[in-house]
Design a protein around this nucleic acid. Structure first.
Length: 487
RNA sequence: GCGGAAGUAGCUCAUUUGGUAGAGCACGACCUUGCCAAGGUCGGGGUAGCCGGUUCGAGCCCGGUCUUCCGCUCCA
């Protein structure tokens, strides 16, 4: 456990030191649970997103992508249940330090009255509670708890804090005049942007069921407790795909996506022992089956991705709230129905953290008679932030000029880094630290026979090849295609 | 939100009981070198997280605050 905590600290420190992740607004002491991606982080993140997008949209003829706005009509969130379900009045007991949902405390008290046959008292308590809840009267709820003499189940005391509203959705106003402005939310999930565009995409794309709509984008949740670096952030990025199927077929497709998604993960070379499924026993109101794909982070197994069978809940709700018919006419069955949905929803930032944890390696290497520690990020080569580093062995004798020629040859296809400072060993190690798969060195022999050495990050071995063969070799090692073909 | 710990240079850390801050690495220039974190010379960089108090004097003592980490709590 100590080793693991230690490793996690090292990964976090490494992320900052090598330009992967910075705390947001750090010069102002940071902003809680908000992080920025740096020059290397953004490359890795883009590459993970690209691997996901291509595996979904390019590799499946019946899946297309969209990019919906973060702002959506406020009624969307009423229909989805987020306005009610995402906002809770909370109260803390000062003695036990326990936090409760105020409405649940009152409901329990009402149930106790009920059990003792005091039906009237229970009913009046609940109706008072509902009035306060509807009016958003937090003081009223607090008074109700005090008057009903509700005690903390743990400490047994009635030493309560004020009731506070914890709304997990961020809101702002649309329209400049505050009094006439409409309250809008920052989306707490990207899925609803897909559901409200279901018919647009289905009709304009002439999509036939079963088909999917994929989307990546930012979502926002005002987490009460945000911890563990970028695992739980207030602003984060999701990669979601909603797959629309015939009602009745959903369990078949649920099994399909459960398996397909795990394959996507394991295809990155992460040990399968570090992955597991976690089936939900308590299902959300919209689901009839749900499973998490969990990864063994240094601090334990955590959810990286969720696969949910959402039934017809979402489309049904939007049909109800919008009054627009959201149905599909199935030509084979010759009938219309509300499709069922299988959702795959993965956290991009969590995937990023997963890869960093898995890639971070400290290994002993011999240097003469001494052994020293080499820190290397073993990121899958097609996802690495910098793909190729180009080094002239010395900074004179025309080697830098030759190195620039090699750089020009590759820079349109790959993120390359040119470096002539310090000795070659130091430059290799710096590239190891950010996970650069290949270092190309231009030496005096290059000027004679047009060959360079290519040094491999993981084996540290060098191979001398002709400059003319470089493009082909790099394509074989670095193109995302090779990952995708194995899916 | 509660409890515990921490915050000194880009990084890792020193600074014996209060006396106006230092090393290694990193960074920049030059020299020497040239295949796995080499050597030399010179140089840049810190109002000690922030605010306040005690004191002749605070990185050090006290209070507050912010941030991070650990444990609770919460998680459609």
């Amino acid at each position: 456990m100590n080793n693991n905590e230690d490793k996690f600290k090292k990964v976090v420190a490494h992320c900052k030191e090598y330009g992967f992740v910075f705390p947001s607004s750090e010069i102002y002491d940071g902003l809680g649970a908000v992080y920025d991606y740096g020059q290397n982080g953004v490359e890795l993140k883009n590459n993970i997103r690209s691997y996901w997008w291509k595996s979904m949209v390019y590799m499946n003829e019946n899946i297309v992508g969209i990019d919906a706005a973060i702002f959506m009509h406020p009624t969307v969130w009423k229909a989805s249940g987020h306005v009610d379900g995402f906002s809770d009045p909370m109260i803390d007991n000062k003695d036990s330090k326990k936090r409760y949902r105020a409405d649940q405390l009152i409901e329990e008290k009402a149930a106790q009255y009920e059990a003792k046959g005091k039906t009237d008292k229970a009913a009046s308590l609940l109706s008072a509670m509902n009035t306060f809840l509807n009016d958003n009267d937090l003081e009223g709820l607090k008074n109700l708890i005090v008057e009903a003499e509700i005690a903390c189940p743990v400490s047994g005391t009635r030493n309560w804090t004020d009731v506070r509203q914890f709304n997990l959705m961020y809101s702002t106003q649309m329209g400049s005049a505050a009094d006439s402005a409409e309250q809008v939310y920052l989306r707490p999930e990207t899925a609803q942007g897909i559901f409200v565009n279901f018919l647009n995409v289905q009709k304009t794309g002439r999509m036939k069921i079963p088909f999917g709509i994929a989307q990546t984008g930012k979502a926002f949740r005002n987490e009460i407790v945000a911890r563990q670096f970028i695992l739980r952030m207030r602003e984060f990025e999701q990669m979601e795909m909603q797959f629309f199927v015939r009602p009745g077929d959903e369990m078949k497709w649920y099994a399909h996506w459960k398996e397909t998604r795990m394959k996507w993960h394991l295809n990155l070379g992460t040990p399968s022992a570090d992955y597991r499924y976690h089936d939900h026993e308590k299902l959300a109101h919209y689901a009839n089956a749900a499973v998490d794909v969990e990864y063994r982070f240094p601090f334990g197994f955590r959810e990286v991705e969720g696969i949910h069978s959402r039934t017809g809940f979402d489309l049904g709700k939007h049909q109800e709230f919008s009054g627009k018919k959201l149905q599909y006419f199935d030509t084979e069955m010759n009938q219309s129905y509300t499709p069922f949905v299988i959702e795959t929803s993965i956290g991009l930032d969590r995937m990023f953290l997963l890869l960093m944890c898995n890639a971070y390696t400290e290994e002993e290497v011999r240097n003469g008679d001494a052994t020293e520690i080499r820190t290397v990020l073993k990121i899958p080569a097609p996802l690495a932030p910098v793909k190729v580093a180009i080094f002239p062995l010395t900074k004179k004798d025309g080697l830098p000029e030759k190195a620039r020629e090699v750089m020009d040859l590759l820079k349109c296809d790959y993120n390359c880094l040119y470096e002539e400072k310090d000795n070659i060993g130091k430059r290799y190690r710096r590239m190891d630290a950010i996970g650069t798969p290949f270092c190309i060195t231009i030496d005096h022999q290059t000027l004679e026979d047009h060959t360079v050495t290519v040094r491999d990050r993981d084996t540290m071995l060098q191979e001398r090849i002709s400059i003319d063969a470089l493009e082909k070799l790099m394509d074989e090692k670095l193109n995302l295609r090779h990952l995708l073909k194995n899916l």
